[in-house]
Computed example of a mutant assay.
Amino acid sequence: IIERMAGVVSSQGAKYVMLNAPRSALAEITAILPGAGAPTVMPLAGRDDAVAVHAVCQEAVFWETLERLKAAGASAILVLPIEKMM
Rank of each mutant, 00 (worst) to 15 (best):
V41Q: 04
A74L: 06
S75K: 12
A50V: 00
G37Q: 08
L69G: 00
M18T: 11
M18R: 12
I77N: 04
M86F: 12
P22D: 04
R23H: 07
E67V: 08
V41Y: 04
V8I: 15
E28Y: 13
V53F: 02
L44S: 00
V61H: 04
A45I: 03
R68N: 09
P81Q: 08
P22Y: 01
S75V: 12
V51P: 05
A6C: 13
A38H: 06
A14S: 15
A38I: 11
F62M: 07
A21K: 05
T40P: 08
N20S: 13
R68D: 07
P39M: 03
L69N: 05
I82C: 02
A74M: 04
Y16I: 12
I82A: 02
V8F: 15
V8Y: 15
A14G: 15
A25Y: 02
L19S: 02
E3I: 10
M5H: 07
L44K: 04
M18E: 10
P22K: 06
P34L: 04
I29S: 06
V56E: 01
K15S: 14
I82Q: 07
L19K: 01
S11P: 15
E67C: 03
L26D: 05
A27D: 13
H54P: 00
R4I: 13
N20K: 08
A71I: 05
V56P: 00
A36I: 07
L78E: 11
D49N: 03
A71Q: 06
A36F: 06
R23I: 12
E59N: 07
P34S: 09
G73C: 06
E59A: 13
G35N: 09
I29C: 06
A72W: 02
R47D: 04
M42E: 09
L44C: 02
M86V: 08
L66H: 12
V8E: 15
S75W: 14
G7R: 10
E3Q: 13
A36R: 11
A76E: 13
S11V: 15
G46R: 09
A52T: 06
W63G: 10
M18I: 11
L19E: 03
N20F: 11
S11T: 14
V53Y: 01
G7C: 11
L44I: 08
C57M: 14
P34Y: 02
C57S: 07
S24M: 12
V56K: 00
A55E: 01
V51W: 00
A27C: 07
D49T: 09
